[in-house]
């Protein structure tokens, strides 16, 4: 049975704006209201133990969805259950089964040492002493937090604070963990530390993780499945590899020739760029293999060095957003 079930979920906001063309002192007092559809008829299921990337451009409706899943916002339409609870009606009961990290918010108490926040959370979630000690101990060990436990939260670095936030969200062994941009603003080392921790959490504790991010590195390293949304609706829901296979069909062969040459003329490839002896050749996976293309280039010129560039997941997603803007349907017919 799915641990998260979302059916036709919608959320509209009434947003006030000053009347167009209105002038004079009352212009700002008399306002018109517009309905903004932040999320529109979104449906998906998440199975226990899955790690799902929920991605989309700014304003796509990601955070609004998460806020409805945590019970903070009441949906305008549709149905959802999380761990058997209806979030907006059973918010308090459900809260013990979920953990949330909002990368740009803090759930720690600003002016107290990190450890004090954990103690307070222990009481908020009524975590038994032994379990608290075990959970906290594991987080301290795997994320190397011992040295800054007594530091007030306001003095922590962003990377340290983020490790604290994750610990705070996990002290009560949630079955579901929502992460809203957990690596935002972190450096490479801090990012990889967080990713490793999440992988082991998902593997060892079987925690279901729903992750929103703009960092495609997070997605590639963590998620087998992605849900892409834009303008409140789902564009793609399925396997990450299949997404790449379908949309990342173009590759680029970069060759360094012995000496500068005019753009090469080889079958199935288009020269995109020439820079001295270096040339970029774009080709479709379906038309030719990299080996065949290299052989063809070698017949035309002497190669000193070469590499094949795969499109990044970032490019793929950019193309999907662009396609959606033009109204191209890309929904995977058989979502994973």
């Amino acid at each position: 049975m799915a641990i998260i079930e979302v059916r036709d979920l919608s959320k509209q906001f009434r947003v006030a704006r000053p009347r167009e063309g209105a002038r004079g002192p009352l212009a700002r007092v008399r306002r018109e209201y517009t309905d903004v559809r932040a999320v529109e008829r979104v449906s998906f299921d998440v199975e226990p133990g899955e790690m799902v990337g929920y991605i989309g451009p700014n304003g796509a409706g990601k955070s609004t969805t998460i806020k409805m899943l945590t019970g903070i916002l009441v949906p305008s339409g549709g149905r959802l259950t999380v761990a058997g609870f209806e979030p907006s009606r059973q918010r308090k009961e459900m809260a013990r089964h979920i953990g949330v990290v909002f990368g740009q918010r803090t759930q720690l108490w600003w002016d107290l040492p990190l450890a004090d926040s954990f103690t307070l959370l222990k009481h908020i979630y009524r975590v038994p002493d032994e379990r608290f000690a075990a959970n906290l101990g594991r987080c301290i060990d795997t994320m190397e937090m011992a040295e800054f436990l007594r530091t007030p939260v306001r003095q922590l670095s962003l990377g340290q604070r983020m490790r604290g936030e994750l610990t705070a969200a996990l002290l009560h062994n949630p079955e579901v963990l929502y992460l809203d941009e957990p690596t935002i603003g972190l450096d490479v080392v801090a990012k990889s530390r967080i990713r490793e921790f999440l992988t082991s959490l998902n593997r060892d504790a079987g925690t279901t993780i729903l992750l929103t991010t703009h960092d495609m590195g997070d997605i590639e390293r963590l998620c087998r499945r992605v849900i892409i949304i834009d303008r409140g609706g789902i564009l793609y829901d399925g396997d990450l590899e299949r997404l790449k296979a379908r949309f990342a069909t173009e590759r680029t062969l970069v060759v360094d020739l012995e000496e500068p040459a005019p753009a090469l003329d080889v079958p199935f490839a288009t020269v995109e760029r020439v820079e001295g002896p270096r040339q970029w050749l774009r080709f479709q996976r379906a038309d030719t293999s990299a080996a065949e293309l290299i052989a063809a280039v070698a017949r035309a010129a002497r190669i000193v060095d070469l590499r094949v560039d795969e499109p990044s997941i970032e490019d793929v997603v950019l193309r999907i957003y662009a396609g959606a803007a033009k109204g191209i349907a890309i929904n995977d017919p058989s979502p994973g």
Partner: peptide
């Protein structure tokens, strides 16, 4: 105003 209220509103108290 900052939006930080969301964490407190999602807690079981």
């Amino acid at each position: 105003r900052s939006g930080d209220i969301v964490t407190d509103l999602s807690r079981p108290f």
